[in-house]
Write a protein that binds this DNA or RNA. Structure first.
Length: 561
RNA sequence: UACCCGGUGGUGUAACGGUAACACUAGGGGUUUUGGUCCCCUCAUUGGUGGUUCGAAUCCACCCCGGGUAGCCA
């Protein structure tokens, strides 16, 4: 037995059993069926990885099918973004791209068959009346007065519905099942409604549109789907799914299996809420790097590999659960750690004058791109000069006990460079803020070769002032301040994190960083992983999104007091 | 309180009647010119009560708790 590529789960167990039992002709065909009414998010990624992953591992196939039965909410903009996102995630539907709308004709024919068989009828109750006669969770519904009309009459009416003889909302086609069923989905569900709405795919060919339940199962059957995987809230629909397949006497009988959708802490996953964030301008758009959308994660700089790894780690089950954001962050760090070169970028520069280093002189030092694996990408030269920039928070005038960075009278290692000692602090006479450090360097400490045994606390990143380039850095944090913004009673937007984006315009980086083309990733040493924004960057003026910060155990010590 | 679905460490997932595994988090230690990485260690007897069994997280019964469902949305 070979090592399984992916953790197992209850759905794979079901498929194993089906295969062993010879079900579905021993085929495995899945599908990812988004409605084109919004952008894909990481919750969809879970479903995509599940469906396409199963198809791959069982030598089956996975279809991409747009569940486009409600033209009022759907748009080609979404059709395009969804395809782009699925492809970017690394999956391929080959020739199996479908639209529920392409089945409208066959769905219609099947509907006529049901009517002829006395299994469906045209109902003239208003939407309001249908609702009130449906009963409640604890009380049975009442039969529609149109329920027992002759099938010939329903057939005639249904044809005229299609022909456009009746106004929107005046009639629906209903399945004749059981108004007393404890499952509300079985209380004569609506199959078709009249809606004069232009469809992105069928134009004005239809003025009646099928409902989800009627369209979905039959679409699965038409495509020969074997395992129709959906989220938990559809479990109550399964009896209806099966009823429709039986009523239509389809050749294939796919089976619906439900799993728990993804919940992530410190974000929201509902399309409605995401749309609201976009429309109310709380974020820059669907692809804002703070959004949990696929396009947002891509824009942020997260790789498809990291997302796939994340999806493997979280597993698949039926229990409602919420994954900690830390799991996603860990997957991202692990992926980037081995593939992204290290460079230095000072975020909030503090000027350092190296008093014993001659003005005008420059010394070239060598720094590896992958310190843990030097041959990987080699090294670059970094210039050292009299005037440097170090990070403001790497200096403390009155350092706490465990602080090992720079302070008056203290030494620190300049990463890939000399040992630096701080002698004096220059402050702004007005504000009292530290504006400059007067230091000296130890010329003998050059390459980090054996020294005199002195213990140097830490190595800090730096750049030579004159050789550094200005870059814009955008620090992203969690979009919300609470783990479950959508929970509780309050409007989720009251939990928006006002500090979810911090723009640093004064950052200084190594020259090579300034020349980076959009889409380039770096680890800025000691800070995090960054991505040259493909949209905001301009030639020679990259804008870096922080993808994820490095784990920071010092922050825990310092922050804890 | 009608029907459906769930309850395994802080968070997730696994174990499919044979004695609780993996990941993340947290804490501790080692390595380290990133307070990074890497390595090692520690943290659960499986909602409760009974029952079946040589043996139960796995099977049965009852109870408790959580989630879903009353669109002409998907």
């Amino acid at each position: 037995m070979t090592e399984p590529t992916h953790p197992t789960n209850f759905i794979r167990h079901i498929i194993d059993a089906d295969l062993a039992a010879g079900k579905h002709d021993r085929r495995v065909v899945t599908r990812f069926p988004p409605e084109p009414n919004g952008y894909l998010h990481i919750g969809h990624a879970k479903s995509i990885c599940l469906n396409f992953g199963i198809a791959r591992d069982y030598q089956g196939r996975c279809h991409l099918r747009f569940d486009d039965t409600n033209p009022a909410k759907e748009d080609v903009e979404y059709i395009n973004s969804i395809q782009e996102d699925v492809r970017w995630l690394g999956f391929d539907w080959g020739t199996h791209l479908y639209h529920a709308a392409d089945y409208f004709g066959r769905l219609y024919d099947w509907a006529e068959q049901l009517i002829a068989a006395g299994k469906a009828y045209v109902c003239e109750l208003s939407a309001e009346e249908i609702r009130t006669t449906r009963g409640t969770l604890t009380q049975p519904g009442k039969e529609s007065p149109y329920r027992h009309r002759p099938s010939a009459e329903s057939l005639d009416l249904f044809r005229r519905m299609r022909a456009g003889e009746f106004p929107d909302g005046s009639r629906v086609l209903r399945a004749k099942i059981d108004m007393a069923s404890p499952n509300l989905n079985m209380r004569d569900p609506v199959m078709y409604r009249i809606r004069r709405e232009s469809h992105h795919r069928t134009g004005d060919a239809w003025c009646i549109y099928p409902m989800y339940d009627w369209a979905h199962g039959l679409s699965d059957a038409l495509e020969g789907i074997t395992h129709s995987i959906c989220t938990l809230e559809f479990a109550d629909h399964r009896p209806l799914y099966d009823w429709y397949l039986a009523a239509a006497a389809t050749e294939h009988r796919p089976q619906q299996i439900e799993f728990a959708r993804l919940n992530l802490t410190y974000t929201v996953m509902s399309k409605r809420m995401l749309l609201e964030l976009v429309k109310d301008r709380h974020v820059g758009g669907w692809d804002d790097p703070r959004m949990p959308t696929i396009s947002g994660l891509r824009r942020r700089g997260v790789t498809p590999e990291a997302i796939r790894e994340f999806c493997d780690r979280i597993g698949v089950a039926k229990m409602d659960s919420t994954i900690e954001m830390g799991v996603l962050e860990a997957a991202i760090r692990e992926d980037l750690n081995v593939r992204v070169p290290r460079v230095m970028c000072v975020h909030r520069p503090l000027r350092v004058i190296v008093e014993n280093f001659p003005e005008g002189r420059v010394e070239e030092l060598e720094a590896p791109f992958f310190p843990d694996d030097p041959p990987k990408m080699g090294a670059r030269k970094i210039p050292f000069a009299r005037e440097l920039f170090v990070e403001q928070d790497d200096f403390l005038e009155e350092p706490p006990k465990k602080f090992t960075r720079l302070a008056p009278g203290r030494e620190v290692r300049l990463r890939w460079g000399f040992i630096l000692k701080c002698h004096a602090v220059v402050k702004d006479s007005g504000t009292g803020a530290v504006t400059e450090l007067r230091c000296t360097y130890d010329a003998e400490s050059g390459t980090g070769a054996p020294r005199d045994g002195r213990k140097i606390g830490s190595a800090i990143h730096w750049v030579a002032a004159a050789h550094s380039v200005p870059v814009q850095v955008q620090l992203y944090d969690r979009l919300f301040t609470v783990p479950d913004p959508a929970g509780g009673g309050a409007d989720f937007k009251t939990h928006l994190n006002p500090q979810s984006l911090e723009v640093l315009t004064g950052a200084r980086a190594e020259a090579a960083v300034g020349a980076a083309s959009p889409g380039t990733r770096f680890q800025f040493e000691r800070r995090g992983f960054y991505f040259a924004d493909p949209i905001d960057s301009r030639p020679g003026a990259p804008v870096f999104n922080r993808i994820v910060a490095l784990r920071d155990s010092w922050a825990k010590v310092a922050g804890g007091g």
